[in-house]
Design a protein around this nucleic acid. Structure first.
Lengths: 186, 186
DNA sequence: GGTGTTGGTCAACATCCGTTGGCAACGGTA
DNA sequence: TACCGTTGCCAACGGATGTTGACCAACACC
């Protein structure tokens, strides 16, 4: 059932407009009317295609972090690889910013963040850290630093954080992430 | 003009209810009606005393981080002191969570976060780091880690982050903050 | 005791929101 | 050509929100 419908272009336009609005305005202020206006169609079309505002957000925030294969490279380079990868993803996909912004105010959004980090960051952590028993804790620590940087750099737009180059961010953050993953517990 | 007005109790009740609502619901979903109901008074009182919803938020998020005197203690203990202090403040004052939650969706809220971190964290950084020229960058790095931990622990409620003890958080985060402040730039 | 100020309630306004149902044009199919 | 599902627009509903102004009760002061 992968037939091409005539409305696919409209569906895509809605999804793109929704991602932009959710990313820049958050869940409550991203109104269906505004999204429809951006997409150049009527608000009722959004409802027909995605059922409800929650349904639209669920569709707009279906994200694959696409974790790289970290098992292949030496354990002491995991920090650099991880930070670099997240930075790339964040700068090329505003759905990530949308997810973060919505996760802060909306319960469904928060659950979405949980899912994604459990499913995508969890396995990587489990494969790298010394004792699998405290893998969740280490993953949470990594998440705190990576989401924190995303917060100040892409959401709060703290000037010094925005002005730093990607290389600089990696150089500062990679040792932190590396330590959270592989250093022995304090 | 510090006379005690008869309405001071009501003003305080409104402010407390507002802090709770802003902290748990964010700016948009924290309605004036709900805040007034919590405070046991009429919504119009909120308007009379605080002018507007923005005014109420401004009053509810007037925060003093109350930075400790870091100049007094040896430079290599600054990380521990800073993380400990922030953790204490965050767990004893829900206005901080409110500020973070609102800062993510509301522009005024974001500006408030900028202010507070510039005014409170800036000077500390400037006094401790080797080269005053890159103090803002170092402050932003520290903010990314501290706000990131606040995000996963108090807002997103990521289970492993919530379950960690305060001592554990300090033990993991302090070396990070210490490095962001005093290590030479990479 | 009258009078002005303060603390508080009530009802309403204008606006916006998510959502719904009806209806017109279009496109392929028989 | 006649038909029917699809795509789209339009107008409206019910409800919630921030905000306002009229009105009432208690208090302070002359």
């Amino acid at each position: 059932m992968t037939t091409v419908r005539r409305s696919d272009a409209t569906r895509a336009a809605i999804l793109e407009a929704a991602r932009e609005r959710f990313a820049s305005d958050g869940y409550e202020r991203a109104t269906i009317r505004a999204i429809a206006r951006d997409a150049g169609i009527d608000p009722s079309m959004v409802m027909r295609y995605y059922g409800s505002k929650q349904g639209l957000f669920a569709a707009a925030s279906a994200i694959e972090i696409g974790m790289p294969e970290l098992g292949a490279l030496p354990a002491q380079h995991v920090g650099v690889a991880l930070v670099t990868h997240f930075l790339d993803r964040w700068e090329s996909d505003e759905a990530l910013t949308a997810m973060l912004r919505v996760g802060v105010t909306n319960e469904v959004g928060a659950a979405r963040v949980h899912e994604i980090f459990a499913a995508q960051l969890g396995p990587v952590t489990r494969g790298v850290c010394p004792d699998p028993a405290d893998a969740p804790r280490r993953a949470a620590l990594v998440a705190s630093q990576i989401l924190g940087m995303a917060l100040v750099r892409y959401v709060l737009l703290l000037p010094p954080a925005v002005e730093m180059s990607a290389e600089e961010v990696v150089a500062w953050l990679a040792p932190t992430v590396q330590r959270y993953l592989t250093a022995e517990a304090p």
